[in-house]
C-alpha cells in the first residue's frame, strides 16, 4: 500500500464512520413490522424495547468508556420510582413530562454518585456501584409509605399520551409505539455522541485510562459526564417501563436487573451500538420460551453461554458476526471504535 493511499484511506474511514449505513434502517423497519405482525405480543415487544434502551445506556459507560458497573439498575429504578410515586400520589401523571423528570432524576443520581465513585477502579468501583444500588433498594424498602415497600406501587394512573392515546394494559399499542419512538430518539442521541470527539475520548479512556491524563484529558470529569448521560437514559428507560406496565417494584433496582443487562450487552457485543439490540432480543426471546418451561436448564444454558462468551467471544454475537464478515471479505476496513479483547498493559 502506498503511503498516500494508507493515509487517505484512514482519513476517509474516520470521516465516514458516522454515516448511516444502508442496513441501519432495518431494525426500525423490523420493529414496525412486529407491531403489525404480532398484535398479540406487543406487551412482550414493549418489554424488549425498554430493555434495549436500558442496555444502550449501559453500553455508553461499559462499552465506550470501559467502566464495569454492577449497579446500573440504580438509575433504572430511580427513574421508575420517579414516575411511579408522582403518579400514585396524585402529583403528576402526564407521561412526557414525567418521563423527562425520570431522566433528570436518573441523571442527577448518576452525577452525584459518579462524582464520588468514579475516582476508584476495579473491585472497589464494582463494589461501590453495587452497594450504592443496594442502598437505594433498601431505602425504597424502608420508605414504604412512599414507595409501597416490597410490594411496590401498582395500578399507576398514567394520563393518556398527548391527551389522546390511552395506555391500555390489554392492548399495549400505545405503549409499544411510544417506547419505540423514545428508543429511537435516545438511540440517535447515543449514536451522535459516540462518533463525536467526546465519544472518541471515551474510547481513549477505555483503551488506556492511564494515558489519558498524559494527553491532558480531565478523566474524572469526562467519566462523570458520560455516567450522568448514561444514568439519564437509564432513568428514562425505567420511567417508561413504569408507564408501560403501570407499576413499579423493588425489582427495578435490584442486582438481578443490573446483572441481566450486563449479560445482555456482553451477549450482543459491547461498544457496538447495536449490541444492545442483538443482546436484549436474543436474551429475552430465549428466556421467554425457555425460562418458564425449563427454568433450571435455562440457567444452566445461560451459565455455559457466559463462560463461552468470556473465553472465546469477547465481543459477543456482533463480534462473531464481524469476524465472519471480515474473513469473507478480502480487504477489510478497520472497525473504528469497537473494543478489542486485549491483554492489559503491564502495571507500570
Amino acid at each position: 500500500m502506498s503511503e498516500y493511499r494508507g493515509g487517505a484511506q484512514a482519513r476517509t474511514a474516520l470521516a465516514r464512520r458516522h454515516r448511516v449505513r444502508a442496513w441501519e434502517p432495518l431494525p426500525w423497519i423490523v420493529a414496525l413490522g412486529f407491531f403489525f405482525a404480532f398484535p398479540k405480543h406487543l406487551g412482550f415487544g414493549t418489554e424488549v424495547l425498554v430493555t434495549i434502551l436500558f442496555a444502550l445506556s449501559l453500553d455508553l459507560v461499559l462499552g465506550y468508556a470501559g467502566i464495569v458497573t454492577l449497579g446500573h439498575a440504580a438509575f433504572f429504578g430511580v427513574g421508575a420510582y420517579t414516575v411511579g410515586m408522582l403518579a400514585k400520589h396524585g402529583l403528576w401523571n402526564e407521561p412526557l413530562t414525567s418521563l423527562a423528570l425520570a431522566g433528570i432524576v436518573g441523571a442527577a443520581v448518576g452525577l452525584g454518585s459518579g462524582l464520588v465513585l468514579l475516582r476508584t477502579r476495579g473491585l472497589t468501583l464494582l463494589m461501590l456501584t453495587l452497594c450504592t444500588m443496594a442502598l437505594l433498594e433498601e431505602a425504597g424498602n424502608l420508605a414504604h409509605t412512599w414507595t409501597g415497600g416490597f410490594d411496590g406501587l401498582d395500578s399507576l394512573p398514567i394520563a393518556p399520551l398527548l391527551g389522546r392515546f390511552e395506555f391500555s394494559p390489554l392492548y399495549p399499542t400505545t405503549q409499544y409505539l411510544y417506547v419505540l419512538v423514545v428508543l429511537f430518539l435516545c438511540f440517535v442521541f447515543v449514536r451522535t455522541l459516540v462518533y463525536s470527539p467526546f465519544g472518541q475520548s471515551l474510547t481513549g479512556i477505555r483503551e488506556n485510562i492511564l494515558r489519558m491524563p498524559a494527553v491532558g484529558a480531565p478523566v474524572p470529569r469526562r467519566l462523570a459526564v458520560c455516567y450522568t448521560l448514561s444514568a439519564g437514559i437509564a432513568g428514562i428507560a425505567g420511567g417508561i417501563w413504569a408507564q408501560a406496565n403501570a407499576y413499579v417494584n423493588l425489582g427495578t433496582l435490584g442486582l438481578d436487573r443490573a446483572a441481566t443487562v450486563l449479560i445482555m450487552l456482553a451477549l450482543g457485543g459491547r461498544g457496538r451500538l447495536y449490541g444492545a439490540f442483538v443482546g436484549a432480543i436474543a436474551y429475552m426471546v430465549l428466556s421467554h420460551f425457555l425460562s418458564k418451561i425449563y427454568p433450571t436448564a435455562w440457567q444452566l444454558g445461560l451459565g455455559l453461554l457466559l463462560v463461552v462468551i468470556a473465553l472465546f467471544a469477547h465481543n459477543g454475537i456482533l463480534g462473531l458476526g464481524e469476524t465472519v464478515w471480515r474473513r469473507l471479505r478480502v480487504s477489510r476496513p478497520l472497525n473504528m471504535g469497537a473494543p478489542q479483547h486485549r491483554t492489559p498493559n503491564p502495571p507500570l
Partner: peptide, 22 residues
C-alpha cells in the same frame, strides 16, 4: 482469563455460578 478484562472475568464467574446453581 488472568490477563483478560475485568468484564470477561465477571461474566465468566457469573456463568460459573449459574452452572453450579443449576
Amino acid at each position: 482469563l488472568y490477563r483478560a478484562t475485568e468484564l470477561d472475568q465477571v461474566l465468566f464467574t457469573i456463568g460459573l455460578v449459574f452452572i453450579m446453581i443449576a
